[in-house]
Design a binder for these strands. Structure first.
Length: 402
RNA sequence: GCGUAGGUGGUGGAGUGGUCUAUCACAAGAGACUGUAAAUCUCUCGCCUUCGGGCUUCGAAGGUUCGAAUCCUUCCCUACGCA
């Protein structure tokens, strides 16, 4: 049986879990660690695939639930798969729809995010005050019933169904259907949800391998859950490590201050010869913790969403380009950044585009934020190989927060 | 000059005797955003404040009234029409 993806470690950084490697897929080889660009609806918002490629982006992650709702799996299948459909010729991934169990479920209509500070979490709060009837996702043992956020129509995802759709979409790497829990859920619920996610993982694995053609082309990633609890995280890592996945995702919610530790607990247990993807993280600072604690891949909507909202990364911290002080600032967003935007435009110009609500504001800002992150991870990779990672980390963080 | 309709906070525009510092939108100021429900959302937006409240506003000046952005008088200004 042919292996769909192949992961090799090139260099491990002593005293940490960090590693530099390569991940071979049908559509090319990814140098890890790598930032995975998010293209939920088969497009990186505001960018063409050519622009995405020019950023140095190596891999794009789309979303099963969104593509299932629109344009539908038949269209993706008829198009010849995600790559051809969106004209991206590099490696791809699809998320399973597991995050939507959370974002359209308990989190819907609340301010609850997947990251929370321990002191600010009121366990069970949103379960009590949440209006169950208003939620768009409802979980049972077999799967999840969703109400479309677009038109209210009802849809049903099971692990088998998610895998089937992901096979139609045809990304190089796909994820099991899981439940992303809320940070406010109590330990008891986290355990129930984790156990259910493990049962779903097994079902996803069986469903994928039942299709020999697909499973030889698409790598399937299991997803570790367990919330912010060490006992659950470690148990989840052990259980999933015992199943034959091609790679592992680390999902769910975290205590913001303890996230890197949680990632370390898990990666100390997961098999070393498989790639590890930290789902939905993160911002520049977060990537250091993720890499240091053994992650090879991470995706995040933050760079693109924040870019569209005017929050731009610089080596001296995040700036809000909408602030009045940038109206006459004729310097680049970050003079050390090598992106197209920074090489050609000023803060004043970007500020003007935002204030006049020009679409190019989103494009130029997204180019910057993505390139900033991708370049940062490129530096991390180099620094793992030449053993200067910790120095890079210390200097970056010190300056970013100054 | 006559007639008509008006003059409300940065702008547009509600309000037409008390519940008015005055609906709402925009503009402006700031904040948030982490497997995309998001080119979104939240807060501030007369002045002062020990955050309890205090003080001053609705073209201007007078007046009626317990009470006026709202009623009356005069004046100033704007738009349109007629001379």
């Amino acid at each position: 049986m042919k292996k769909p993806i192949e992961f090799n470690t090139e260099h491990k950084l002593a005293g940490t879990l960090a590693r530099a490697g390569t991940l071979k897929t049908e559509h090319g080889t990814i140098q890890t660690p790598a930032f995975v660009t998010v293209g939920t609806k088969a497009t990186v918002k505001s960018l063409t695939p050519e622009q995405v490629k020019d950023l140095g982006a190596q891999v794009v992650l789309a979303n099963t639930y969104h593509l299932y709702l629109q344009p539908g799996e038949e269209v993706l299948k008829s198009a010849g798969g995600l790559n051809k459909f969106m004209k991206w010729d590099g490696p791809t991934m699809t998320d399973s729809g597991g995050f939507q169990v959370f974002s359209l479920g308990v989190a819907f209509g609340t301010k609850v995010g997947k990251l929370a500070k321990a002191g600010e979490i009121i366990v069970g709060e949103e379960i009590e005050k949440g209006d169950e009837a208003g939620k768009l996702a409802k979980i049972d043992e077999d799967g999840v019933t969703f109400k479309s956020y677009k038109d209210g129509s009802e849809h049903r995802f099971t692990p088998e169904r998610s895998i089937e759709i992901q096979q139609s979409i045809g990304a190089d790497m796909i994820f099991v259907f899981d439940e992303c829990t809320s940070p406010a859920a109590p330990h008891k619920y986290q355990q129930e949800a984790m156990d259910r996610t493990h049962r779903w993982a097994k079902r996803s694995l069986n469903a994928h391998h039942a299709n020999k053609e697909a499973s030889e082309k698409q790598g399937l990633f299991g997803i570790v859950q367990g919330g912010r609890h060490r006992d659950l995280r470690e148990e989840s890592a052990r259980v999933l490590a015992g199943m034959n996945f091609d790679g592992y995702g680390i999902g769910g919610s975290f205590d913001k201050d303890d996230m890197y530790n949680a990632v370390g607990w898990v990666n100390a247990i997961l098999p070393e010869n498989k790639p590890r993807h930290l789902l939905g993280i993160g911002e520049p600072i977060d990537l250091f913790g993720a890499v240091e604690n053994g992650c090879d891949l991470f995706d995040c909507v933050a760079p693109t969403r924040q870019a569209r909202n005017g929050a731009l990364y610089t080596n001296d911290g995040r700036i809000n380009i909408n602030n009045a002080k940038y109206i006459k600032d004729f310097t680049p967003i970050d003079s050390e950044c090598d992106c197209y935007t920074c090489k050609n435009y000023t803060r004043a110009y970007i500020a003007h585009l935002f204030r006049s609500q020009e679409m190019s504001a989103a494009t130029l800002a997204s180019i910057h934020n993505l390139r900033f992150l991708i370049a940062l991870v490129e530096k991390m990779r180099t620094s793992i190989i030449d053993e200067t990672f910790l120095d890079l980390k210390t200097k970056f963080i010190e300056r970013y927060y100054k």
